[in-house]
């Protein structure tokens, strides 16, 4: 089985609030000094899910694809160190500033170029924009079934058996292959790479594809092809207000608090 893992490199979600800045003119996040971008945590979990299937099915292969700039190669290396076989970086200035649609379109083009792909694993969402669209849109582009927010993925039957997280528990579904799966944090932690694999990953070359390699036009990728326009990006105002609950006794104050929380639909 050949599984593609889509991995995105994102600004570190643990950037201290004081170091997180937005450039109002360009509507972009200013990279924080001394804080390197990281692999989106959900994508690491998707890689873990793919690697477990690879280990359970001899002869399987995992390819990691990332759409990003040069620095995204380190996210690919990280997944290679976990045990993925090959890495592809979709790296072209034309890809910049796209939206979920162009990202999915570009990734799907790469998946088609690979040819023999049986399944695509994505994180449930990228931990920077949190849109959760790319996995679904890849499925749309490929014309494949998609199962989202998986907490478990196994092989055994006809295709993949997937435990999907739903509001009050989880449901088990089976999907034929090829298919797209988005993996959630309920799946578990990604593995810690073994040093021999880190060494092997360091020696692997990451394939780089540009717009033309994928048979796409510059006009349909990146900012040019995006359907979503960003109007304004800003940090939420930080601050707090204190409201003291009226009442002469603790009981009265508690009753007032409950009434207030109910009125605000918090409880």
């Amino acid at each position: 089985m050949h599984i593609v893992v889509c991995a995105k490199q994102i600004p570190d979600p643990e950037t201290p609030p004081s170091a997180f800045r937005i450039d109002a003119a360009s509507n972009k996040v200013v990279p924080a000094q001394g804080i390197a971008p990281v692999l989106s945590q959900f994508d690491g979990i998707a890689a873990e899910a793919a690697l477990r299937i690879k280990e359970a099915n001899a002869g399987s292969k995992v390819t990691v694809i990332s759409l990003g700039a040069d620095s995204a190669a380190s996210a690919i290396k990280q997944v290679l160190a976990m045990g993925a076989d090959e890495g592809v970086l979709l790296n072209d200035p034309a890809f910049e500033d796209g939206d979920s649609y162009t990202t999915a379109k570009t990734l799907a083009a790469a998946i088609k170029k690979l040819g023999d792909v049986d399944a695509v694993f994505c994180g449930r969402q990228a931990a920077d924009w949190d849109m959760g669209q790319v996995g679904l849109l890849i499925a749309e582009e490929m014309g494949w079934p998609v199962s989202i927010i998986a907490k478990g993925v196994t092989t055994g039957g006809a295709g993949l058996q997937i435990q999907r997280v739903v509001e009050d528990g989880y449901e088990t579904v089976e999907t034929p292959l090829p298919a797209v799966v988005t993996v959630s944090n309920e799946f578990g932690e990604p593995r810690y790479p073994k040093l021999p694999q880190i060494m092997a990953a360091a020696k692997k070359t990451v394939t780089q594809w540009k717009t033309a390699d994928l048979g796409l036009d510059a006009g349909e990728v990146g900012a040019a092809g995006a359907r979503l326009k960003l109007e304004k990006l800003s940090t939420p105002p930080r601050g707090g207000a204190v409201e003291l609950m009226p009442g002469d006794s603790p009981e009265e104050q508690a009753a007032a608090l409950v009434a207030k929380l109910r009125a605000d639909k918090i409880i």
Partner: peptide, 9 residues
Amino acid sequence: RGTALERTT
């Protein structure tokens, strides 16, 4: 992990 401080805070 998870510190909200910077090295210059």
